[in-house]
Computed example of a mutant assay.
Amino acid sequence: MNLKKFADHNTLSQFTAEYIAKKINQKPDSLLCLASGDTPIETYHRFVALVQAGKVDISQCTFVGLDEWVGFGPDDAGSCSYYVYRDLFNPLHLRPDQIHVFDAKADDLATECKRIDAVIRSKGGLDLLLVGMGMNGHIALNEPGTPFNLGCHVVELAESTKTVGQKYFTSQTELTKGITIGLRHLAEARDVILLVSGEKKASILRQALTGPITEEVPASIIQTRPNAHVWVDAAAGSLVS
């Protein structure tokens, strides 16, 4: 893995946006899977600006959703896909055929997992996967204890994830399960970026990067990817060198 520290969140975000644009310019029909959450929002705003400025053409790209709260969808404020549509898909004016997100309201979630697995397989795997990291070390909604070899799956949410997830909603919301791509997809992706920002992530980042590779710290799988990028701001990276 390649660790790179940035002075602040804005510098981190600009660098990441430019990197995504560069990768698309190298492979215009890229399959990208980009996280929701607070950390990448500024990256998306800056990436959209690059597209609008004509610095990159996304007309041949395909985008896959990373994860979703079970029972929620793009029209539900607070859902994972709500924010990705708001900050990325809608400003980019993507065509419907360019977007594949989990239908977390589906009656058959196992079939929904197979559908997203099939999309990724049909494109020959992910060209670029951008993820963040939870306070318990989760990647996407792969909670501690999730096998590294899983593809898309449904997961029981950890208590800490349920608590932190409330920040995305305007009122108390019951969160019980998630649907997510698996860490197998991370292991197989051609390019992986782990973005981490903020002092509160410093301790778990150190554990993920320097501790044992274990399913109890899902983000530790990044150690198995020699060419993965771990890009952090100074606060998040204060305990690692």
Rank of each mutant, 00 (worst) to 15 (best):
G73N: 14
K201F: 11
S122W: 00
W231V: 13
S122C: 00
K114E: 15
L88M: 09
G198K: 13
V232L: 12
Y82S: 09
L239Q: 07
T170C: 01
G198D: 13
L94T: 11
T16R: 10
V101H: 10
K114N: 12
G125N: 13
Q98N: 02
S59Q: 01
N90S: 13
Q172R: 08
F148W: 15
K4D: 08
D108N: 15
L130S: 03
W231A: 12
A202W: 09
D233Q: 15
R225P: 06
Q223V: 06
L126P: 04
A234K: 14
F47M: 00
T146G: 12
Y44K: 02
Q60N: 05
S220E: 13
H100V: 03
I181K: 09
H93W: 01
L186P: 04
I120D: 09
V64T: 04
I58F: 04
R190M: 01
S122D: 14
C152Q: 05
C33M: 08
S59V: 02
H138V: 06
G73V: 05
F89N: 00
T11H: 10
V196Y: 10
P218R: 04
A202L: 15
K162N: 04
D103C: 02
A110K: 14
P40G: 13
K114V: 05
N2S: 08
I221G: 03
I20Y: 05
V155F: 13
T170F: 01
S30V: 02
P28Q: 12
Q14I: 09
A158L: 10
E188N: 07
Y82C: 04
Q166G: 00
L128H: 03
G211V: 06
V70Q: 10
H45T: 05
Q60V: 01
D57N: 14
N142L: 12
V240L: 12
C33V: 11
T180Q: 05
C80N: 07
Q207G: 07
M133F: 14
L109V: 02
F148C: 02
F102C: 02
I179H: 03
S238E: 13
D97Q: 09
A158T: 13
D29M: 05
H9V: 11
I116L: 12
T210P: 00
R46Q: 14
K55Q: 10
E112W: 07
E112S: 08
Q52L: 01
S122E: 15
S122I: 00
Y85N: 11
S171F: 00
L209G: 09
V84N: 04
D29R: 05
I24N: 07
K123T: 04
T146L: 13
P147N: 06
V164K: 00
L239V: 03
I99F: 07
G151L: 15
Y83Q: 07
L183I: 04
T173Y: 10
K162F: 01
L175A: 01
V240Y: 04
D127P: 12
R206M: 12
V164I: 07
L150G: 00
A158R: 12
V196F: 12
D87S: 03
V230H: 11
Y44C: 01
G237C: 07
I221F: 11
A140S: 15
P74M: 07
V154P: 11
S79Y: 05
F89I: 09
T16G: 06
F169S: 00
Q26W: 02
Q60C: 01
L175V: 04
V230F: 13
A219D: 15
N2M: 09
G65N: 01
A49Q: 14
